[in-house]
């Protein structure tokens, strides 16, 4: 039980990462894939694909950035609690 309690914040990060991943994928599939520029022909198709790729890429990078941010905060909090209350070894 103690081990589970100690891991709660990391599990929380994992939960957030999971939820955000599903959200980003759903947004890409529902909205980004349907984005179309009013340009016809081969150039239009190429630009549409490039635009969709860039937006999807930005969303995924944002997701990774939030993930790293959450992890760093989690680690700093854990390090602080280690410094403040040196615990006995399990």
């Amino acid at each position: 039980m103690r081990a589970l309690k100690e891991m709660a914040d990391i599990i929380g990060v994992m939960l957030a990462v999971w939820g955000l991943m599903l959200l980003v994928l759903v947004v890409i599939e529902q909205f980004v894939v349907d984005l179309k520029l009013p340009i016809e022909g081969f150039m239009g198709a190429l630009l549409n694909n490039a635009l969709q790729l860039v937006i999807a890429g930005v969303l995924l990078v944002l997701w990774l950035w939030v993930w790293l941010l959450l992890t760093k905060r989690c680690r700093n909090r854990r390090l602080r609690s280690w410094s403040e209350s040196p615990q006995e070894l399990s």
Partner: peptide, 23 residues
């Protein structure tokens, strides 16, 4: 990251990996 809360014996550390994997 797991050990940033304090040192652990190896089996205890592995137990925490298992908890994360179970989640």
């Amino acid at each position: 990251l797991i050990l940033s809360r304090g040192p652990l014996k190896e089996p205890e550390l592995v137990k925490r990996y298992a908890i994360l994997s179970f989640s």
